[in-house]
């Protein structure tokens, strides 16, 4: 797998204060990379340096092996979708006009743009006939951000940057949009850099996660590797803080992530195995284990792995220990 984005000794000062001392990071092509951290950790700044909304103080960023400062900024940005926390749809444009912003600049034929708009709207579950000519202020927050995402991907960019895109949404919309991001990522195979302060969001979305604090990248790894081998206390605490207050409210998917799934289907009768979704809670899990020996954890009907009583108990004991 080749590298899509590479930070090389990137340094960033704001008004003489250093916020990022020395950042080195590679994002692979086709990867959904999540940058997670508390506010002020430099994650959004790092993101904005990729499309040059923020200039670098020192070092370089390579996009598709080219130094971003040597590429005309327009070309760089036209091949780089951008989704904002504030959504920021253009209020005087219709839904269709918003989505058409980049294709129009690129000179894509009108008919083709119209076709793309309809396809995209249908894909995110918005009827083009109904939504095409609506104005942004006629949409709910969740609907607005769907359009925000479509606007970013309308011209099929190879890279999409997302800056805390769902933090202002209600939990239900957030969950739906997270699923949408995963679906779209799978379909278009683009590279996504996703910034969030929410560890559960990072765990759900990321192929790999980078955890940032005070401008430093503390650990870069897959969700389960981070969960199992946090590099230091901060990472462990950050990860822990993402867990529900009440142990019964924790998703069963989290247990598998931390403890690791049993990959092989246990050699027992099917009626000894209870199928649960990753987002079912441990409460449901305990009830199931009262009558069954194993849990099959599915995400979107696809079995992720299996859990037995011991695994759940081991997780529980770790959780109790903090």
């Amino acid at each position: 797998m080749t590298t899509a984005i590479e930070f090389k000794h990137v340094k960033k000062d704001f008004h003489g204060t250093n916020v990022i001392p020395d950042l080195n990071l590679s994002v692979k092509k086709g990867e959904l990379f999540v940058l997670v951290g508390t506010s002020g950790s430099g994650k959004t700044t790092s993101l904005k340096m990729i499309n040059r909304l923020e200039p670098l103080t020192a070092g370089e960023i390579l996009v598709n092996d080219r130094d971003t400062t040597t590429v005309p900024v327009r070309d760089l940005r036209w091949d780089m979708g951008y989704v904002l926390q504030q959504i920021a749809l253009f209020p005087t444009m219709t839904v269709a006009q918003n989505i058409a912003v980049i294709p129009e600049m690129k000179g894509t034929p009108k008919k083709e743009i119209a076709k793309t708009i309809d396809e995209l709207l249908t894909e995110v579950g918005l009827d083009p006939e109904v939504y095409r000519n609506r104005m942004p202020d006629e949409l709910s927050g969740g609907e607005q951000q769907r359009i925000g995402i479509l606007r970013a991907i309308a011209s099929k960019p190879s890279i999409v940057l997302m800056d805390e895109p769902f933090s202002a949404l209600d939990p239900l919309s957030r969950q739906q949009l997270q699923d949408l991001v995963l679906t779209l990522h799978q379909r278009y195979g683009n590279t996504i850099v996703f910034v969030t302060h929410d560890m559960s969001e990072a765990l759900k979305l990321g192929d790999r996660i980078g955890i940032m604090r005070h401008g430093d990248l503390l650990q870069v790894d897959t969700p389960s590797a981070i969960a199992q081998h946090p590099v230091n206390d901060f990472v462990r605490d950050f990860f822990g803080a993402s867990r529900a207050k009440n142990v019964y409210d924790i998703y069963v998917g989290r247990v598998g992530l931390v403890q690791g799934y049993l990959k092989e289907k246990p050699a027992v009768a099917d009626n000894r195995i209870q199928t649960l979704d990753t987002e079912d809670t441990l409460r449901t899990g305990f009830e199931a284990l009262a009558n069954h020996d194993y849990l099959a954890i599915t995400d979107d009907k696809v079995v992720q792995g299996y859990l037995d009583r011991q695994t759940v108990m081991a997780y529980l004991s770790m959780h109790e220990n903090g």
Partner: peptide
């Protein structure tokens, strides 16, 4: 944020 969006999309 609107200005930022316009910039991020490479508008002249």
């Amino acid at each position: 944020s609107i200005e930022e969006a316009a910039d991020a999309f490479g508008m002249s």
